[in-house]
Amino acid sequence: MGPAVELWKETEMGKTRTKYEKLREKIMSWEDKKTKKAKRKLHKTERGVEKTKLKAKQRYSEDNERIESIVSKARANAYERQIKEELKVKQKANLMRTTCLNEDTTN
Rank of each mutant, 00 (worst) to 15 (best):
85 E>S: 06
3 P>Q: 00
106 T>I: 13
41 K>E: 12
16 T>C: 09
91 Q>Y: 09
13 M>A: 15
96 M>R: 15
105 T>C: 06
89 V>T: 05
28 M>T: 11
73 K>T: 01
60 Y>G: 09
106 T>Q: 12
51 K>I: 04
31 E>M: 10
101 L>H: 11
84 K>M: 04
107 N>D: 11
23 L>E: 13
51 K>R: 12
4 A>D: 08
43 H>Q: 10
98 T>I: 08
77 N>F: 05
71 V>A: 01
12 E>Y: 07
5 V>M: 03
13 M>C: 08
19 K>A: 10
27 I>W: 02
30 W>A: 10
83 I>F: 02
15 K>Q: 11
47 R>K: 15
44 K>P: 00
69 S>M: 04
69 S>T: 09
14 G>P: 01
21 E>I: 10
105 T>I: 09
14 G>E: 14
39 K>S: 04
16 T>I: 12
69 S>A: 08
41 K>Q: 06
84 K>N: 05
103 E>I: 12
61 S>R: 10
18 T>H: 14
94 N>R: 13
64 N>T: 06
35 T>N: 08
53 K>V: 07
58 Q>M: 07
53 K>I: 08
47 R>H: 09
102 N>F: 11
12 E>D: 03
101 L>Q: 14
72 S>E: 05
69 S>C: 08
22 K>T: 08
31 E>K: 14
55 K>Q: 08
84 K>A: 05
80 E>A: 05
48 G>R: 01
96 M>Y: 13
8 W>T: 04
81 R>E: 07
42 L>H: 07
71 V>Q: 02
28 M>Q: 15
46 E>L: 15
44 K>G: 02
103 E>D: 10
23 L>V: 13
59 R>Q: 12
32 D>Y: 14
15 K>Y: 10
18 T>D: 15
6 E>A: 12
94 N>E: 13
73 K>G: 00
65 E>G: 01
18 T>R: 15
90 K>N: 01
35 T>V: 08
73 K>F: 00
1 M>P: 01
32 D>S: 15
42 L>Q: 10
81 R>N: 05
